[in-house]
Design a protein around this nucleic acid. Structure first.
Length: 822
RNA sequence: GCCGGGGUGGCGAAACUGGCAAACGCAAGGGACUUAAAAUCCCUUGGGAGCAAUCCCUUGCGGGUUCGAUCCCCGCCCCCGGCACCA
């Protein structure tokens, strides 16, 4: 053991290895889950171990969350900061396929590498509670969760039009289709009709939406809240029945006020009434159109295509408001999965209906008019909203303002039993079946006699068999179906011939409840522990990427709500506070493998040290906005740490000198404590670090190394540079961790300077400053200002108006401003 | 089109939600130390005028409110993200 000398230099690799070892030995990062009196659950989104390793974006995310956890720790909370691996799923399986290694072999290897990187970063992780979603002890409970939802009637199987990715050879949830392409591989998604398992997330649409606006339940980033709102997509309106030969045709509209302008109906090609409506002579054309529509992939069906096509079914319906006989058409601009799959065409007030009417020469009747218009000209009126519009050509409703017209017509429809008020959501049920190998098998058995039978809980987990041929194919059937010995089982209910469900569940089901499992990893007999949940949940702080706004973050809320309604959880919102971190770009450009500019953290950690790397990441931009990673930037934070190191080596216990006091060291010190504390609480890490740099510069300027200040400096630096701070703390004579030290408090009175410089403006332009004591009266400051030639040069006589903001600013208003003569 | 977040020096950015615009850092230039380089230290660095004290201009664009606007209001432009033939 070498003795430290006051002048020995900062060697990150030595310091970091030492403290990582010591944290492990001392169990520094392992809070008492049973007895914690001030528990703080600090969660960050766990990674997919599906690549060579973590990239700088992951490090940025984890570091920011870790800084917050360490700050809370220093404030005296017992912080639980777990880490795990989202190791099931297409991303991991695709990676295994590409590498040509079985995922069961590859993924544990990746996890080891991820763990190594994470430990090197110096996160405050409690490794006792590490989990992997691929562990049977984990996915046993994922399957259990499926059964809970199944028994609650929240899981069901139906044959439906689903998104099929031809490259990944599986169905996808709507949330995993981005602009008609696969979220994972970017292939255009096809439509297939398959029997799939769904979760009834739509049952919770209203609650999921309402809680977003409830600050007692959720404090989330605005961008995430907005994305979820858009995704849930609530619309208010009415459904209206149009009588026809084949029975009533129900349409949904958000604008019942335009009902009198409905001159035709349009049904989606897949609409179930089309067969019955179609007249004999039109049958061939209608069939051809339906076939063509079905053949289109989702991209071209939903995106672009402004020209409208469609065919007449030969049938007519009656507009219940006007009594007019109106033709029934089909067109692919009407989508079966939204509303009722049928619309009333109002060509005068809807752009799409207008284009359709123009193409097929359908009548256009205007029923809304602006102020001072009669509405007699039958042209399309592109109007968004209802403001300034009134109804015309609308029978007894004419002349009502549009907003009132909506309410009046709904009331009339309800009275006449022609329709009713209705809220429509864009959100669809969550399709969780995947025709892939690498996931938890859905715990259902199909019996020839009993039908679908849930696997009894005592038989869980349904183990994923180790099979060599796990490649997916085009059949729409999971690779597991090829394995008879696994596929064929006796029925758990009657013992008769039966077979297993061969689909696995969506990865997002694995990740929808992992925060519960972290708290209970040592329990084999239960998925989570009520007493621990009671103590630690909901999660106090959750940090992650906004790309999961309508995926993981929505699904997790749904699962918590479902469990809550089953009496399993006593909260329904799992993440009290969520903050979305920003994204990192490299030299101004997005990082991507094809560009070859992906930053691998390891080399930087080796060169600069983890503490410098962490500090740089937190300094390079606002945490919630991200920033630009530039190699040159690392030298700044490293120089900063070197200077702090040097300050620590020469620090001494003494009183401040007159010169130091004169330079306002005490004020700067207390101001810094305040700024760093508030900055950390708001995740404004870049400004917190800047404040510390300012204090350091101020100390160095007067050569001050007073021990009390240096100690508090080290504590405040500890969230960013934990190993470094521990080492400094020890060298300052401590025998316990710096994280036991407690967060420094500041004296508000001492953050204010006693003598201040008040800017003096003339007509709003700063012309000079006067030094006055804090709290000086207006008279005092004005008198001082008018003694200053730099001011009087511009005033030329008595000011006509004086604005004085105490301790802030003096503004003298003069009528004839004198121009500066230089 | 609708919703959310942005637009400030050569660059990353800061500014008590109305009060000295550009803190902190990077890069660049000059100087000191050194045989030299690196490291370190000191100085300069938004634009323009001036020998200078100093003055004028400057927060995407155009208006407005105000003694005073990066901040508030109105009308635009551009960038990032979400939703979107959604009725």
């Amino acid at each position: 053991m070498t003795e430290h000398h006051p002048d020995d230099s900062y060697q990150p690799e030595v310091v970091e290895a030492k403290w990582q070892a010591r944290w492990a030995e001392r169990h520094t990062n392992e809070p008492d889950l049973e007895g914690a009196t001030r528990p703080f659950y600090n969660l960050m989104m766990f990674p997919y171990p599906s690549a060579e390793g973590l990239h700088v974006g992951n490090f940025f995310a984890f570091t920011g969350a870790d800084v917050y956890g360490r700050f809370k720790r220093l404030q005296g909370y017992q912080v639980f900061e777990p880490m795990g691996f989202d190791a099931f799923g297409i991303h991991s399986e695709n990676y295994a396929l590409r590498i040509g290694t079985h995922p069961a072999e590859l993924i544990p290897r990746n996890i080891e590498n991820f763990r190594r990187q994470l430990k090197r970063l110096g996160g405050m992780f409690d490794w006792r509670h590490q989990l992997s979603t691929t562990d049977p002890d984990y996915y046993r409970w994922t399957q259990w969760l499926f059964l809970q939802l199944y028994h609650a009637g929240k899981a069901y199987k139906k044959k439906a039009a689903v998104n099929w990715c031809p490259r990944d050879k599986t169905v996808l949830a709507n949330e995993q289709v981005i602009n008609g392409t696969c979220e994972r591989c970017g292939s255009p998604v096809e439509q297939r009709f398959l029997e799939q398992w769904f979760f009834r997330i739509t049952d919770y649409a209203e609650r999921l939406l309402a809680n977003l606006a409830d600050p007692t339940k959720m404090d989330w980033s605005a961008s995430t809240v907005s994305a979820q709102r858009n995704w849930i997509g609530r619309s208010e309106g009415a459904e209206i029945d149009f009588p026809s030969e084949a029975g009533p045709i129900r349409v949904f509209t958000t604008r019942p006020d335009t009902l009198f302008g409905g001159t035709f109906l349009v049904l989606a090609p897949e609409h179930p009434l089309v067969d019955r409506l179609t007249a004999g002579s039109e049958r061939a054309i209608v069939e051809a159109y339906r076939k063509a529509a079905a053949a289109k992939d989702i991209v071209s069906r939903k995106v672009g295509e402004k020209e409208k096509t469609g065919v007449f079914t030969g049938a007519f319906a009656v507009n219940p408001a006007t009594g007019a006989k109106i033709p029934v058409w089909i067109s692919d601009y009407v989508l079966m999965e939204y509303g009722t799959g049928a619309i009333g065409g109002v060509p005068a007030h809807d752009e799409r209906d207008f284009l359709f009417a123009l193409t097929y020469r359908l009548p256009i009747v205007r029923v809304l008019a602006a102020e001072g218009e009669t509405g007699s000209t039958p042209v399309y009126e592109p109007s968004t909203g209802t403001s300034g519009l009134r109804l015309v050509n609308s029978g007894q409703f004419s002349e009502l303002p549009a907003e009132q017209g909506i309410q009046a017509i709904i009331a009339w429809l309800e009275a006449e039993q022609l329709g009713k008020r209705r809220v429509q959501y864009r959100l669809h049920d969550w399709c969780i079946s995947r025709q892939r190998y690498w996931g938890p098998p859905i715990p259902i058995i199909y019996c020839d006699a009993c039908g679908p039978v849930p696997v009894p809980e005592k038989d869980l987990p349904v183990l994923l068999p180790l099979i060599p041929d796990f490649q997916p194919d085009d059949s729409g059937i999971s690779p597991l179906a090829r394995h008879e010995e696994w596929y064929r089982v006796p029925c758990p209910r009657c013992g008769g011939k039966a077979h297993r469900e061969t689909d696995v569940s969506d990865t997002f089901l694995d990740s929808a409840w992992y925060y519960l499992r972290y708290l209970a990893t040592e329990f084999a007999d239960r998925p989570f522990d009520p007493a621990r949940n009671q103590r630690w949940l909901p999660v106090a702080s959750y940090i992650g990427g906004n790309e999961h706004a309508v995926l993981h973050l929505l699904y997790s809320r749904f699962i918590a709500m479902g469990l809550h309604d089953q009496g399993q959880l006593d909260f329904e919102e799992p993440f009290r506070k969520f903050r979305a971190h920003g994204t990192i770009v490299k030299d101004g450009a997005k990082m991507s493998k094809s560009r070859g500019n992906v930053v691998i953290p390891d080399q930087y950690v080796s060169k600069w040290g983890a503490d410098t790397f962490r500090t740089y990441l937190m300094f390079l931009g606002p945490y919630e906005e991200g920033g630009d990673f530039r190699d040159e930037g690392l030298s700044g934070p490293r120089r900063f740490l070197d200077k702090v190191w040097e300050l620590v080596q020469r620090c001494e216990r003494r009183t401040l000198t007159g010169e130091e006091l004169q330079h306002g060291i005490v004020v700067k010190w207390h101001q810094t404590k305040k700024r760093v504390t508030l900055g950390l609480e708001q995740l404004s890490y870049n400004t917190a670090i800047a404040a510390l740099m300012e204090l350091l510069n101020a100390l160095r300027a007067v050569n001050c190394s007073e021990r009390k200040i240096v100690k508090e400096f080290v504590i405040m630096l500890a969230p960013f540079a934990p190993h470094f701070a521990e080492e400094c703390w020890e060298r300052l004579g401590a025998t316990t961790s710096v994280f036991e030290a407690g967060w420094p408090d500041w004296d508000e009175g001492l953050t204010l300077e006693q003598e201040i410089e008040v800017p003096v403006q003339v007509n709003g332009k700063t012309r000079s400053r006067v030094r006055v004591p804090r709290g000086a009266t207006e008279e005092h400051v004005v008198a001082a200002a008018l003694r200053d030639p730099a001011v009087t040069k511009f005033t030329d006589g008595a000011p006509s108006k004086i604005i004085y903001v105490k301790d802030r600013l003096l503004n003298l208003v003069v009528r004839n401003a004198v121009r500066g003569k230089g």
